[in-house]
Design a protein around this nucleic acid. Structure first.
Lengths: 136, 136
DNA sequence: GGTAACTACTTACCAGAAGATACCAACTCT
DNA sequence: AGAGTTGGTATCTTCTGGTAAGTAGTTACC
């Protein structure tokens, strides 16, 4: 009976690592995931594969440097795949892996939260500013 | 019949804003939420109110500068409240607002994902490194 | 009475990361 | 021949985050 189910192993993993610890590798991983460009790239790819220039147009304001950098680290971490088609001109497609798709739901949820609650946040900022002025 | 339900207004809000746009305020908000310290602070407070030094101990490796900065912006944005008790020595409690609690679930989900999938990410990095060496 | 400790910060400094911009090579289209 | 497409580098400047030290107000200790 030395069998361990996938659920048990997941439960073990949850307790073996703690992102609150500075030297825990999950702390570093959380730092990578907590990135605006990561959120936007993963959200953009959640609808299906996209090309480099396609992502550049979709994610307004991203510089080629940051887009390439973000895509490379996400590829390295197994979140997405990079497929080069040696046509003319060359064509590069990016697509989420199953691992990436499991993450996409969570990151798009945060993005959607921002879109849904921006007005409450703005209202809070105005209240904060008013209190500051009254107190100052 | 000019009535609009809360659900309808939420739906409108979802379409009025687009975090992919550089100049959309939600893009900026997403940038604030996509922060390691924000994730850790909100996750730490999701279990109930905590004091400053309590947070400092819980979130290993955070500097007083970043902790204060993070707490101030989250207070300004209506995610948490700051309550000063003028005892001796002074005591400051931080607590999530209802808005903050609605966000906490999403951010702790990302943190939990990191803890659960760190080994898959490590495996992907090793594969990537091996391919690089073979190709290089 | 001096000084060490506790609280919750603030400030100054600097390395490294992020961002904007320009440029590249290869090819097609007009 | 000149402009436009592709998927990026290279470079320069600005900004952010980490480190380390200082601050204020009170109390406990010797």
């Amino acid at each position: 009976m030395a069998t361990t189910t996938a659920a048990q192993r997941r439960e073990q993993a949850r307790h073996a690592y703690d992102a609150f610890m500075r030297d825990c590798p999950t702390n570093q991983l959380l730092g990578r995931l907590s990135d605006k460009w990561v959120s936007l790239v993963v959200a953009a790819l959640s609808g299906g594969p996209r090309r480099y220039s396609d992502l550049r147009r979709k994610i307004a304001g991203v510089s080629p440097k940051m887009l390439t950098q973000t895509l490379r680290t996400l590829e390295r971490d197994g979140i997405l795949t990079r497929a080069v088609t040696p046509s003319v001109p060359v064509r590069v497609d990016y697509e989420l892996t199953p691992l990436g798709r499991s993450l996409a739901g969570l990151l798009t949820a945060v993005k959607d939260w921002a879109e849904e609650h921006i007005e409450e946040v703005h209202a809070a900022r105005e209240r904060y500013g008013a209190e500051e002025a009254a107190a100052g």
